[in-house]
């Protein structure tokens, strides 16, 4: 039951992009086509889950026992940056097809604040053990993917409709994202 609550809350109620504003850059950057946004979602899910596990272990077995919690920001971002590199190298060797699909998105993930944000949230939320953290990371990745893919679908339609000149392109995309966020607010009552 507790896991269900974490999942519902992370995907719908506190959606990482539309309610917590994490990962907004890729949300606008790669959401012009549904296909690319699916690729990005795959890459983010992959890195987010691994990064959350590793940073969770660092937080609870290194930073807290040695009382150096102030090193959190530096150590987490270093872990994520090297993890992205590692994932890139391994994927290239093990699964060239997957590497082709995710390839261009991987370097971008280092500066995706959703990954660092989820890692920090999972490591610092009271009562989250390793399993809860992993569930939390997966749910957030799904929430990110859901928002990204819905938004990409909407944007493909935006190209075809008649928009006032000044609103063309980015401004109308923001307004649409706002309306999407408004729709997601409807889930607030659930949890």
């Amino acid at each position: 039951m507790e896991y269900v609550l974490i999942i519902i809350s992370a995907i719908f109620v506190n959606n990482i992009v539309l309610a917590k504003f994490l990962g907004v850059c890729p949300f606008f950057g790669v959401s012009t086509k549904v296909e690319t946004s699916i690729g990005m979602t795959g890459a983010v899910t992959f890195v987010m889950v691994i990064a959350t596990i590793v940073t969770y272990l660092i937080q609870h077995y290194v930073l807290i026992p040695y009382k150096i919690e102030y090193m959190q920001t530096i150590s987490f971002i270093l872990v994520i940056a090297s993890l992205v590199q590692l994932v890139e190298i391994i994927l290239k060797k093990v699964s060239p097809a997957l590497y082709q699909a995710l390839g261009i998105f991987l370097p971008l993930i280092t500066t995706n604040c959703a990954v660092l944000g989820v890692a920090i949230l999972a490591a610092t939320t009271d009562g989250y053990g390793l399993i809860e953290s992993v569930v939390f990371a997966i749910a957030n990745a799904v929430g990110f993917g859901l928002a990204l893919i819905i938004f990409a679908g909407l944007r493909e339609h935006l190209d075809l409709i008649d928009v006032p000149n000044g609103m063309k392109g980015v401004p109308i995309a923001f307004v649409v994202a706002g309306l999407l966020a408004l729709a997601f607010m409807g889930f607030t009552g659930i949890a």
């Binding site: 309610a19 504003f21 980015v170 401004p171 307004v175 994202a177 966020a181 408004l182 607010m185």
Partner: peptide, 13 residues
């Protein structure tokens, strides 16, 4: 949250 997106959209416009 929704207001942030909408306000920024109109400011850019």
């Amino acid at each position: 949250a929704p207001g942030a997106f909408i306000a920024l959209g109109y400011l850019i416009a």
